[in-house]
Amino acid sequence: MQTKPFRIGTRGSPLALAQAEETRDRLIKAHGLPPEAFEIAVISTKGDRITDRPLAEIGGKGLFTEEIEAQLSDGRIDIAVHSSKDMPTVLPKGLYLSAFLPREDVRDAFIGREARRIADLPQGATVGTSSLRRQALVRRARPDLNVVPFRGNVQTRMRKLEEGIVDGTLLAMAGLKRLGLQDNATDVMAVDDFLPALGQGAICVESRTDDTETDRLLAPVNDDATRTALHCERAFLAALDGSCRTPIAGLATVTGDTLAFSGMILSPDGTASFSVSRNGTPAEAADLGRDAGEAVRADAGPDFFESWS
């Protein structure tokens, strides 16, 4: 039986801390444990430390997980809590995604300084976002806009917006809700028009593959529908090699005995895109995602990926 506090590793941004606290609170409620049974350990990552360059330029996925996973592997922490969309498809040996919390709102939110919607922005207005997917989708909808990289946590980006550095930005609605900032959204983008990032809105827990005690602790807080959807989305990403320089979007939803998936890849300038959809059963989640990824890769052809890699 564990006598020292159960250590939850996380990044130190307000959103990352909110996600770790949600995980802790669900575990406390599920097991009737006191708050002092858990300790949140803040770990600095490369993605947090380097803020003056686009993510794709310094390595893409893995930038927000590597240092946390090192401490998980050597036992300094017991679990790691992440945003699912930050997770590479290949994890370090001995680690796996052991639980997914119930998924929050998957949509993107537009926050405009004066214009309430992207469609209302004046010609040549500046939109800031660090996401290649969001950049491509904005450029596809409004090729006249000036789209610029925009790094920083939620609060930093909103402060930059208020200072007039950009005319608008996009953030995940899930993150705004978890921070109690959802009223700042001036427009919530429909998924049919603005397909979200793979894994968006889902908190995942990473642990060691041989840690059966932790598996038992996490089992009551795992949400099967979210886990199934993420298996599909991550299989789609894996089939595309998850290139950090290719804008990729996708969403799987589970309704009863049906799983529906929609995926898309775009050119960074938004002028070219390839879409795919699949329907099946939850048991087929990984196969559907993999098949969708292979199909859209074949449709786009090798030149599509090599043009900007």
Rank of each mutant, 00 (worst) to 15 (best):
Asp167Gln: 15
Lys160Gln: 11
Leu121Ile: 07
Ala99Tyr: 05
Arg157Thr: 02
Asp108Pro: 00
Ala99Leu: 09
Leu121Thr: 10
Gly128His: 05
Lys85Ala: 02
Asp86Asn: 09
Asp108Met: 07
Ala115Phe: 03
Pro102Glu: 13
Gln123Met: 04
Ile118Gly: 04
Ala109Phe: 03
Arg140Ile: 00
Asn153His: 11
Met173Trp: 02
Phe150Thr: 04
Gly124Cys: 09
Ser131Gln: 08
Pro143Asn: 10
Ala125Gln: 05
Ile77Tyr: 03
Arg76Phe: 01
Arg103His: 01
Asp167Tyr: 03
Asp78His: 10
Gln123Leu: 10
Leu132Trp: 02
Val166Asn: 08
Met158Tyr: 02
Glu104Ser: 14
Ala99Cys: 06
Ala136Pro: 08
Leu179Thr: 10
Asn153Arg: 06
Asp86Ala: 09
Lys177His: 08
Gly94Glu: 13
Ile79Gly: 05
Glu114Gln: 07
Ser130Val: 04
Thr89Lys: 03
Ser98Lys: 13
Arg151Met: 13
Leu95Val: 13
Pro102Leu: 14
Val147Lys: 12
Ser130Pro: 14
Leu91Pro: 11
Ser83Thr: 13
Leu176Arg: 14
Pro102Phe: 07
Phe150Arg: 08
Leu132Cys: 05
Met87Glu: 12
Arg76Trp: 07
Ile118Gln: 05
Leu91Asn: 06
Arg103Ser: 09
Gly112Ile: 09
Ala174Gly: 05
Glu162His: 03
Thr129Val: 06
Lys160Asp: 08
Leu101Glu: 12
Arg103Glu: 13
Glu104Asp: 14
Glu162Cys: 00
Arg133Tyr: 03
Asp144Pro: 04
Gly175Ala: 11
Met87His: 00
Ala172Tyr: 04
Arg117Tyr: 01
Gly164Gln: 11
Arg178Val: 00
Pro92Ser: 09
Val81Asp: 05
Lys93His: 13
Ala80Asn: 08
Tyr96Phe: 13
Pro88Gln: 09
Thr126Gly: 02
Thr156Lys: 12
Arg142Gln: 12
Leu97His: 06
Gly124Glu: 09
Thr169Ser: 07
Gly128Val: 08
Arg113Gln: 07
Gly175Arg: 07
Gly112Glu: 09
Asp78Gln: 10
Ser84Phe: 11
Gly164Cys: 06
Val138Gly: 09
Ser131Cys: 10
Asp120Thr: 04
Glu114Ser: 08
Pro149Asp: 04
Leu91Met: 15
Pro149Trp: 07
Val127Ala: 06
Ala80Lys: 12
Arg76His: 14
Leu137Ile: 07
Val81Gly: 02
Ile77Val: 15
Ser98Gln: 15
Arg151Lys: 12
Asn146Gly: 01
